[in-house]
Design a protein around this nucleic acid. Structure first.
Lengths: 134, 134
DNA sequence: TTTTAATTTATAATGATTCTAAATAAGTGT
DNA sequence: ACACTTATTTAGAATCATTATAAATTAAAA
């Protein structure tokens, strides 16, 4: 089974049609050793005008809904996404607007001593903002 | 010293001219018992069309730069601000898009076991996403 | 009071994202 | 292989938050 086939399976198994565009996007996003942090603009540059911007948005939103991508919470004018959908955290380099993974093992378990009645915790996200230390 | 005077002092002491608009905005933001979480849209509703939207943006940005307001990191189409500029964290109710303070004393100290060479940590923010538990 | 620079403002511009609706293509059944 | 149904793609328009512009106003200093 080659790479494309695995993407086709992945797409079909979640009820998405395996279109050429989605497979192309899968290749950019998931054929990687390390996790990929990106904006729509970043992704569109990788795709090099081969795919319409509307489709890129549609696909990223679809993948997010299916749990293949995760949106990262930072205050920015644009959305950042992460191919690492497991539980983990981030450094955000405010000098370069760059994200760096911060694995769970590198953060001592975050313990919340307050609970909100009638609500349950969905996720706990730690964002460590960093800057040049000179 | 009445309230306005204290705002005038506050503004002047940080090199901002004490304009009627800024004093009006100070009253909305800082005459409160509890901290105030808001968007520009929220604030403009409180000000009830008395002040131009451009001025509201300018002022919020100026106050943020001076450290009177803090921007909160959540992935949203708009920016959220907080009148509590001390070190603390947040719950974000995903059902209602509402923010709730999570004081430092209610979070066990977040310990980061990884450091990025040449960078220093500027802030550590914890965002606890919650939803209805039924 | 005069002066100067900061501020306010309406409006235009920008940029990210979503919407629209027509054309295309995937997957299903024959 | 073929037709059918429905999802998807797409260009372009629309929307929404935010910033820029540039002329009029005003605060604060001289």
């Amino acid at each position: 089974m080659n790479n494309n086939d695995s993407f086709i399976q992945k797409l079909r198994s979640s009820g998405l049609k395996a279109t050429a565009q989605r497979i192309e996007i899968c290749k950019v996003l998931f054929n990687r050793d390390k996790t990929f942090h990106f904006t729509i603009y970043d992704l569109s540059k990788f795709l090099n005008k081969k795919i319409s911007l509307a489709t890129i948005y549609n696909t990223v939103n679809a993948f997010k809904k299916k749990g293949y991508l995760k949106e990262i919470s930072i205050n920015s004018d644009k959305s950042y996404y992460d191919t690492n959908v497991s539980n983990h955290h981030h450094f955000f380099n405010e000098s370069t607007n760059e994200l760096i993974d911060l694995h769970n093992k590198d953060v001592e378990k975050v313990k919340i001593k307050k609970n909100i009645p009638g609500k349950k915790i969905k996720s706990i996200e730690v964002l460590v903002k960093i800057e040049n230390s000179n």
